[in-house]
């Protein structure tokens, strides 16, 4: 059974904008998929749907065999980790350490603290453990949010432009962190480097439809890269 399946999904925003139309694909366990497309092609919308933050207007989505619906959405959210393109809205605690600890459900306080410190060390922010994440630089902030998301141990990781506003060392650091995990990932990006170093598969969106789904190495894929990626 695939980890997630998306079956003839369409999404129309309340103001009438048709963001996605008739999308179908499946995500296997451990698969790393790049989601590319021009601005406004529906990448973020697709991620919100998989993150159970929106419900499809048509079609169905299921994760680990559970179909997404009004009644199952909060259960599904527990198994999905989401890194938004604007990460400043996803912090809850006033310092990095406690924010990561909030994502860890099991263990005594000491164990959770030790684990949280490990995640912070993993994203190279252990020196900032008592800083307010909102007052970090944007690259550090992204890594702090990533630590909290990973600490949730999600079955599926959704990343919306994880490399936007990062410099070369930080991008490399984030890519290394993502490579070191075997979690299934779907990441929207405009960076050629991210696609080439991380993706095992690429999905290309155009105007809310999938126009390519397959290996990043094929000639068709390269043609799309020319038009879309930086």
């Amino acid at each position: 059974m695939p980890l997630a399946s998306i079956h003839h999904v369409s999404y129309i925003y309340p103001d009438g904008t048709a963001a996605l139309s008739d999308i179908s694909f499946t995500i296997e366990h451990g698969e790393k998929i790049a989601l590319i497309g021009n601005n406004g092609s529906g990448k973020s919308t697709l991620l919100y749907l998989l993150g159970a933050l929106l419900l499809p207007s048509k079609g169905s989505i299921s994760l680990e065999g559970i179909a997404l619906s009004r009644t199952t959405k909060s259960a599904l959210r527990k198994n999905v980790g989401m890194l938004f393109s604007q990460v400043e809205y996803q912090f809850i605690m006033p310092d990095c350490l406690n924010d990561v600890m909030l994502s860890i459900r099991e263990g005594t306080k000491e164990e959770r603290k030790e684990q949280a410190m490990q995640y912070l060390r993993h994203v190279n922010l252990d020196a900032y453990f008592n800083h307010n994440p909102l007052f970090l630089s944007s690259g550090q902030m992204k890594r702090a949010a990533l630590a909290s998301v990973l600490a949730k141990k999600p079955a599926l990781l959704l990343l919306d432009e994880p490399l936007a506003s990062l410099d070369k060392p930080s991008s490399r650091a984030v890519l290394d962190i993502l490579t070191s995990h075997t979690i299934a990932m779907l990441f929207a990006t405009h960076s050629r480097h991210a696609v080439e170093s991380l993706a095992q598969r690429v999905i290309v969106l155009d105007g809310g439809c999938i126009v390519y789904d397959g290996s990043p190495k094929s000639r068709d894929a390269k043609k799309h890269f020319e038009n879309i990626l930086l």
Binding site: Y48, G51, L53, S74, R77, K78, V80, G81, M82, F84, Q86, Y89, Q90, F91, I92, M93, D95, L97, N98, M101, L102, S103, R105, K109, R112, K113, N130, S148, K152
Partner: peptide, 24 residues
Amino acid sequence: RAMHLYRNGFLSRSVAEISEPEIF
């Protein structure tokens, strides 16, 4: 403008409970 961003950010964290915090 940020209302739905706040909502999404919070829901995606799916916080079950606030366990004992680490106090500095």
